[in-house]
Computed example of a mutant assay.
Amino acid sequence: MTVRVTGRVVTPAGVIRQGCVEINNEQITAVAEYPSGRDGHWILPGFVDIHNHGGGGHTFTTGDADEARAAAGFHLRHGTTTLLASLVSSPFELMRAATIAYRPLVAEGVLAGIHFEGPYLSVARCGAQNPAYLRDPSTEELTELLELGHGTIRMITLAPERAGATAAVKLLTAHGVVAAVGHTDATYEQTQAAIAAGASVATHLFNAMRPVHHREPGPVIALLEAPSVVCELIADGVHLHDGVLAFATATAGAERTALITDAMAAAGQPDGEYELGGQTVTVTTGVARLAGDGAVAGSTLTMDAALRHAVATGVAIPEAARMMATTPARAIGLGDRVGALQAGLRADLVVLDDDLNVVRVMRAGTWLD
C-alpha cells in the first residue's frame, strides 16, 4: 500500500513548496512535486539525535532497558526517529551491563546504538561528569565492550590528551565505532593527532573544552577546521551564545554540523532535583545544573525545540534539516538508511506547522499516532 504525504517537502536539494513523499511499507519510494494549490505543512526528515541522556523523566544512564525504551518514546513524540542512548562516565561494570541490556533495543530499532560519553575524559574539563569515574582509555575495556555489543556501540567520547587515547581511537575506528573528542583540555596539536588517528566527531563543541586563545587555539579550532570532523552543537541558548552558534554553523556548514539535545531525564518535566551519573542536578526554569558547583549538566532540550531555536537565530530550514538529520546520520554511519527524504531510505519524517511545532511523526512508514 502506497501512502502519500504532501506539503512543503524539505529534501537534500532544497524545498519542494508543493511536494509529495511516497511511502511503501517502511521505505520512501519517491519524492516529487505534487501541485495542490497550497503549500501545506512542513515535511522534514525524522530527527537524528546522536547525543541524548534521557527525557520524559526517564534516563539512559543507568543501563535500565525499560527506562531506555520510555526515554526513546518521549523523544520520538518530539520528532526524533533515530537516537543514540548516551551514558555518562561510570564504572566498567555499568558499561558492560548497559551494553548487554541495550543490545536487544538496538536490534529492535528502538535505539540506533550506544554512545559512551566517557569515562576517558579530562578531570579539568569534566563539566557535569562524575570525576570519581574518570580514567585513562583502556583498550582491554574497549575490546570487551565491542565483543559484548555486536555492533551496539556506535560512538565513544574521549579526551585525546589522556594516556592511551591514540591507541583507543585507532581501535574504535578499526571496528567501525566513532571516536569523538570531548571533555578535553587538549592542545591544538594533541587534538590534531586524535583527528589524524581517526576521531571524527566533536562532542558538544565549545562546552567542556579548553577555550580558544590566540596563542593556543586548543581543541575548538582544530575540530572546527578539520574537514573530516562533524561538530555537535547544543542549540538551546544556554550552552552556547546565539552568536557562537551562528559562527560555528557558518564555519562548519550544514555538512559538518550536527544539532543535538544532550538532554537528560528532566527534558519535558517540571523543575526540581534529578540525578545524573551519581550526582544531583537541579533544574530551574528549564536549565539543568549540578547542585554542587553549578556546572551546566546536560539540557532539557528536545530536537523540535532545537530546530525552532536554530531557525530563530537565522539558520534556514533546509540547512537546519541537514544539521538535525542528514549530517548526524552520516556521522554515525547511518546515512545510507536514514536522515533525508529521498527514495530508498527508511520512511522517517516529521510534519510541522508554520511555527515548527510537531503535528505528526512517522517512523519506518508508521504514524506515531
Rank of each mutant, 00 (worst) to 15 (best):
F92A: 14
T82R: 00
Y188Q: 07
L146N: 01
A208T: 03
A32R: 13
A193P: 05
D354T: 00
I43E: 01
D236L: 05
V283L: 07
F74W: 12
L349N: 02
L334Q: 14
D369Y: 03
A197T: 12
T29A: 06
L121N: 03
A250E: 15
A291V: 08
T139M: 01
T59D: 14
S89M: 04
A199Q: 13
H309I: 07
A267C: 10
G55Y: 00
A70F: 06
G344P: 03
A235H: 06
A174Y: 09
T261L: 01
M95G: 03
A165K: 12
P131N: 04
N130C: 06
Y133N: 06
A124P: 08
P318W: 08
R154K: 15
S299A: 11
V110G: 09
D336Y: 04
D39S: 13
G40D: 06
A97V: 00
G109P: 08
G113D: 03
D185H: 04
Y274H: 09
V169M: 05
A331S: 14
A343T: 09
T81I: 05
G292T: 13
S299F: 08
R322P: 00
T191S: 13
R135I: 08
N52E: 04
A343G: 11
Q27Y: 09
G365D: 08
T191I: 11
R135L: 10
L87V: 06
V311D: 00
T11P: 14
A165L: 12
N24P: 00
P318Y: 10
T11G: 10
A312F: 07
P318T: 07
L111Y: 14
K170C: 01
L356F: 15
P227I: 06
L276N: 07
L145V: 02
T187Q: 12
E144T: 14
M362D: 02
R8V: 05
H58K: 14
Y120Q: 10
V177D: 02
P160G: 12
G40N: 06
S228H: 05
G292I: 06
A320G: 07
L276I: 12
L142S: 03
V281K: 01
P45C: 01
T81Q: 07
A252C: 06
G335H: 12
G243I: 09
V110Q: 11
A263I: 00
R103W: 08
L276V: 12
T59F: 00
A329Q: 12
V5C: 13
L307Y: 07
R17N: 04
A107L: 10
T302M: 11
A208L: 01
L94S: 10
